[in-house]
Design a protein around this nucleic acid. Structure first.
Lengths: 236, 236
DNA sequence: ACGGCGCAGAGTGTCGACAGCCTGTATTAT
DNA sequence: ATAATACAGGCTGTCGACACTCTGCGCCGT
């Protein structure tokens, strides 16, 4: 879990910050580090075998990504998930689903579709294997690839960020279900691919809306069920 | 211009990074620091009268904002403006104009409208005074206030970022014109305010599209004229 | 004259240390 | 017993120093 680094592996100059950033980012997004847990600079520096400076810079970047919250003069904690902010989140997510899928259809780049298909296949395999983490990751890559096809870097970066934030929520959701129903997502993805290749913008828009609504409904059901319990407990 | 800091003003603990970040950010957005100019950590530390650490952290935050580009093991430069990326930029900007204005109309928060009106007035005053920098800033605040009214923090942060990036482009544009025609923008803003207050979502959408198109057209004319010259020179 | 090599200078990446702030605990006064 | 206060510990914010890497220039060989 907290695997130590081989003692005297002198890493390349400049790689310190990046490796810590990547490692922490993965752990946060995969929920290996639960929201709210404290990140101590000294302890991290011991764990990664380097001084506090690279650690600090990694935390700063994570903070810019919104993955971590810095309490001035106190400590840094993994950003909490604000369930109250879910409706706006889904709003934004739906919008980006639509915009990127439409743009991809309008441009029709057969070469880029290879990439999309690759991720779709990875997604399908993860579904077959009941591999929740793999599904989430492949799903993200699938949609990012479509956004890239769309050709608007502003959408790509915003969408990526939304999808990353969603990874933590999806992780909660999948972990309670051990799902077998995401097979439907596979079919919806296939339909989206077909519509993009046909250059059918209107169908893309419809499919994107439906796809988003599907996800939103599933998660809202989950929230209503499990969070209902949680608040009930809290209100005792 | 490069005003020095009073020698022995011991700043509050933790304010170092923030003040440097704010100062550099302002200078970059106002084009006081031209794109591509180098930012030397040592020189900055001398100028701000502090060690390199807070400077570094400020630069890191600016880099996360995309305002600055870090060349590993070399130096940091002010991010350049990529004119090739203008079409996607305008695409994204138009979308956010529409989405935020619509959302604001759908929610109709009379209290929040005060804030919007305040910025609109500041904008009108800047136009009267032919104050290009004031116009740009007030315009940004005006649209951000509308986005806040819309109630979606994801849109607010994405839109803010787009508008900030636009500040530098607008600055180029205004600086060549010394404009008196932005009076039209004032009228368009008024129309938008009226439509929001009426809760007329469709009209808001139309106005937002028109407003964006207006800006896009102006800037494209500018680019066609002045950049045409520039590329002509480059191709000699 | 021209191309490859080495060198010096500049600037960053990393480190260890110090000082200040915050929290929680123990102590004291009421 | 309770509340305010002082204290100790932990952690962050900042500093100055060192090592490494890159660039540009001058030197040397051809």
């Amino acid at each position: 879990m907290t695997e130590a680094v081989s003692p005297d592996a002198v890493r390349a100059r400049g790689s310190g910050t990046q490796s810590v950033y990547a490692a922490l980012r993965t752990e946060i997004l995969s929920m290996a580090l639960s929201p709210g847990s404290p990140l101590d600079e000294v302890r991290l520096s011991e764990r990664f075998g380097m001084s506090r400076t690279p650690i600090r810079e990694a935390l700063l970047r994570l903070s810019a990504d919104g993955l971590v919250t810095t309490l001035p003069n106190r400590n840094t904690i993994v950003a909490t998930i604000d369930f109250a902010a879910l409706p706006p989140y889904f709003d934004a997510l739906t919008l980006m689903y639509r915009v990127t899928t439409r743009a991809a259809a309008a441009r029709r780049d057969p070469a880029g579709m290879q990439e999309v298909r690759r991720h779709q296949q990875a997604f399908a395999e993860a579904v077959e294997a009941h591999d929740a983490y793999g599904m989430i990751e492949a799903n993200r890559e699938f949609h990012v690839a479509i956004a890239v096809l769309g050709g608007n870097p502003y959408y790509v970066s915003f969408f990526s960020r939304l999808l990353d934030e969603g990874r933590r929520i999806l992780r909660l959701y999948y972990s309670t279900f051990d799902d077998r129903l995401p097979r439907q997502y596979v079919e919806e993805h296939e339909a989206i691919i077909a519509a993009i290749e046909a250059g059918d913008v209107d169908t893309c828009d419809r499919l994107a809306i439906a796809h988003a609504a599907q996800i939103v409904r599933q998660i809202q059901e989950y929230v209503a069920r499990d969070m209902g319990k949680a608040t009930a407990i809290q209100n005792l």
